[in-house]
């Protein structure tokens, strides 16, 4: 069903958005799961697609086939790279093996031509234009927002809670001195 292809896109974008909300929001815990569900669904066969959707679906699968090991490889390399002149050789070897494998797979599947470059530049311009409009919208929305009202004073239980934290920290500092 062609809708599956669009659900994949929705899950990938939605999962990423939820994951980057940060630990202050419970929803962020499910971000990775939603993103992963999108990835799994992307590899399942889809029927009833238009020719352009079929091409995009195939292109996404090809990209993911090298991008997933590549992303893992780069992450492992980054975690094994020298910090204060100490590097983890094992992590570097594993990471660079994965990265080289994905680079090889990428160059096999990637064949740029003039038509493709033209379309890529055009699509990048479209995304840039939309993001510029979005950023200006944020600016306008922020500039027209009403000022926050005066914050209410703390309630007695809040004062007690904060006092306890401060006293506990001051006590720790004095004990260290």
């Amino acid at each position: 069903m062609w809708l599956q292809w669009w659900i994949v896109l929705f899950l990938l974008i939605s999962g990423y958005s939820m994951a980057r909300m940060g630990p202050a929001f419970d929803r962020s815990r499910f971000g990775f799961l939603v993103f992963f569900a999108g990835l799994v669904l992307a590899f399942l066969p889809t029927e009833g697609l238009m020719s352009s959707e079929d091409a995009a679906s195939e292109s996404l699968r090809l990209t993911l086939s090298w991008a997933i090991p590549g992303a893992i490889g780069l992450y492992v390399v980054a975690s094994g790279a020298p910090i204060y002149n100490e590097s983890n050789i094992f992590k570097l070897l594993i990471g660079w093996s994965l990265t080289l494998y994905s680079l090889r797979a990428m160059f096999i599947s990637w064949g740029p031509d003039i038509d493709m470059i033209g379309k890529t530049v055009s699509s990048a311009l479209g995304v840039t234009l939309t993001m510029t409009i979005y950023l200006y919208s944020i600016r306008i929305a922020e500039s027209t927002s009403s000022e926050d009202s005066v914050t209410k004073p703390l309630e007695s239980d809040e004062i007690k809670h904060i006092s306890d934290i401060l006293l506990s920290n001051v006590g720790d500092m004095e004990a260290k001195e």
Binding site: W2, W5, L9, M50, S52, E53, A55, A56, S57, S59, L60, T63, A67, G70, L74, T99, S102, L103, M106, F107, W110, P112, M116, K119, T120, S122, S123, A124, G126, V127
Partner: peptide, 23 residues
């Protein structure tokens, strides 16, 4: 459906450049 899927194919072509830069 057709224009968005075409643009997805085109945008995916940028990924190799980004990937090689990070590498």
């Amino acid at each position: 459906r057709s224009s968005v899927s075409e643009s997805i194919s085109s945008l995916l072509n940028i990924l190799p450049i980004i990937y090689v830069s990070i590498a």
